[in-house]
Amino acid sequence: MSADGNRRFGGSDSYVATDELMLAVNAAVTLGRPLLIKGEPGTGKTQLAQEVARALERPLFEWHIKSTSKAQQGLYEYDAVSRLRDSQLGDQRVHDIANYIVPGMLWRAFDHEQQAVLLIDEIDKADIEFPNDLLRELDRMEFYVYETRQLVTARQRPIVIITSNNEKELPDAFLRRCFFHYIRFPDTATMERIVAVHFPGLKRQLLAEALGAFYRIREVPGLKKKPSTSELLDWIKLLLAEDIPPEALRSDDPKTTVPPLYGALLKNEQDVHLFEQLVFMHRRAGRPS
């Protein structure tokens, strides 16, 4: 740990991290504990790991979890099919089982001569027992390969970043080993910084209008999926591509106009429907009788 005691994560030119997030990352790096990141979809959870790796100049290993993922796959897999084929072909490799042990992401991160960053993405997608199967691996940073009777130990404790979308609750024993940070939805000031990072040449007026419209949509009650940072960035990209003037985004009454290209912000038809209905109702209410 002491070797990189002076290295600190402090955001980067393409990623805006709040102070508390940086503190959480640095605390996790200092103590060599995994950091569990939660937050609304689209607030840059996965990107964090990439940025940490870039900022600290560490190699990044990404392990994306699916509903069928097994903890074992992150450690290693025994490729029985290749071995079967080799045995049919009379290949000499077949006699050494070690030839058929394929290391997983965790093993590769452990084995790297430099301290690595390991991203375990969307851990909540996996089976409910998945985190429990990784307890010892993340705690002691070692595991045992039964086929070759070999103990794999991390050369240097990797920086482990785990993201979750809260679809399943994680077991207490697992949580106890992690540090935890919840990425709050950015406030207007932070959002301005984020947009500035992604669109440096954006006109101030357009930015102000777009953010205004964006936060108004977020405040519409009853939306199934509120638009988040990544949707805002997509939307601004579209606005720029279509060359929409800032005036088009403005309205006297926040709810009487539908912002252009709102399809980038609202992601399901019920929400679009709800939104249009609200606009319709307000228009009718606003009309002089």
Partner: peptide, 22 residues
């Protein structure tokens, strides 16, 4: 365990600070 982890961080003296605050 978590409480001890907190003490451990505090004990390291140089609190892991963000570059921004520094």
């Amino acid at each position: 365990t978590e409480f001890l982890a907190l003490l451990e961080v505090l004990e390291k003296g140089t609190l892991p600070f963000s570059a921004a605050t520094a």
